[in-house]
Simulated scan of single mutants.
Amino acid sequence: MSDSYLPVLVLMIGAVGFAVAPLLLAWLWAKTFSPRKPGKDKNAIYECGLETKSDFSIHFKSGYYLYAIVFLVFDVEAVFLLPFATAFSGFGVGECVAMLVFLLLLIEGLVWAYQKNVLTWT
């Protein structure tokens, strides 16, 4: 029984190694070969080649982020609904109920966003 999970374990170790190895190598390279030269110019805020004129940062409305998140949620909804719509005739009752629950959860999210005024730009 444990032999059947060996390929999965090897692939998981390979996936983690593939993600962590470049980060570890970059960190080692920076520690070994990159000299630390702190100074006024290196610690200065740099934005598009222009010097900053003030010390404060611009605060963005969180509504823009919420609007983007709602857009992504309903964009993913379209990805899940397309296969369901194309194979609708081949589904049984269980699949239709699962899709109905999925749609009800998305409608609940839309109602929540409407109640929180996420969908308005003012």
Rank of each mutant, 00 (worst) to 15 (best):
E47T: 07
P83D: 07
F80L: 15
Y64H: 09
V79H: 07
E77H: 06
E51K: 14
F80A: 13
K53Q: 14
F71A: 07
I45S: 05
T52R: 12
Y67F: 07
K61F: 14
I45H: 07
C48F: 09
G49D: 00
V73E: 12
P83T: 07
P83A: 08
A68M: 04
V70Q: 02
I69C: 02
P83C: 09
V79E: 09
E77F: 04
S57F: 14
T52D: 00
V73P: 04
A44G: 00
I58E: 13
C48P: 03
Y46D: 01
C48R: 12
F60A: 12
F74V: 00
Y46F: 04
I69K: 10
V79T: 10
D55A: 13
L82V: 10
E51V: 07
Y64A: 08
K53N: 13
L50R: 10
S57Y: 15
L50S: 09
L50D: 06
V73R: 13
V73S: 09
T52P: 05
I69R: 09
S57W: 13
G63W: 03
A68P: 01
E51Q: 13
F56G: 06
E47P: 03
K53I: 14
E47N: 07
Y46N: 05
K53P: 05
Y64F: 12
F80M: 13
F74I: 01
I45C: 03
G49Q: 00
S62P: 02
L72P: 03
D55R: 15
Y46A: 05
L82S: 08
H59A: 15
E51W: 08
F71C: 04
V76R: 08
G49L: 01
I58W: 14
F60M: 14
S57L: 15
V73T: 12
T52S: 10
L81C: 05
L66Q: 00
V76I: 12
E51S: 13
G63I: 00
D75L: 13
G63L: 06
L81S: 05
H59S: 14
G49R: 05
A78S: 12
E77I: 01
K61E: 11
F74T: 04
Y46M: 03
I45M: 02
Y64M: 10
S62V: 11
A44V: 05
I45V: 13
F60D: 12
D75M: 12
F80Y: 11
P83R: 09
V79D: 09
E47K: 11
D75C: 11
S62F: 10
I69W: 05
L82T: 12
A78E: 08
K53V: 15
K61R: 14
F60R: 15
A44T: 00
V79Y: 11
D75F: 10
T52H: 08
S57I: 15
Y67V: 04
Y64R: 07
F56D: 08
F74E: 08
D75I: 03
T52I: 09
L66S: 02
L72W: 04
G49H: 06
A44P: 01
Y67P: 00
L81D: 01
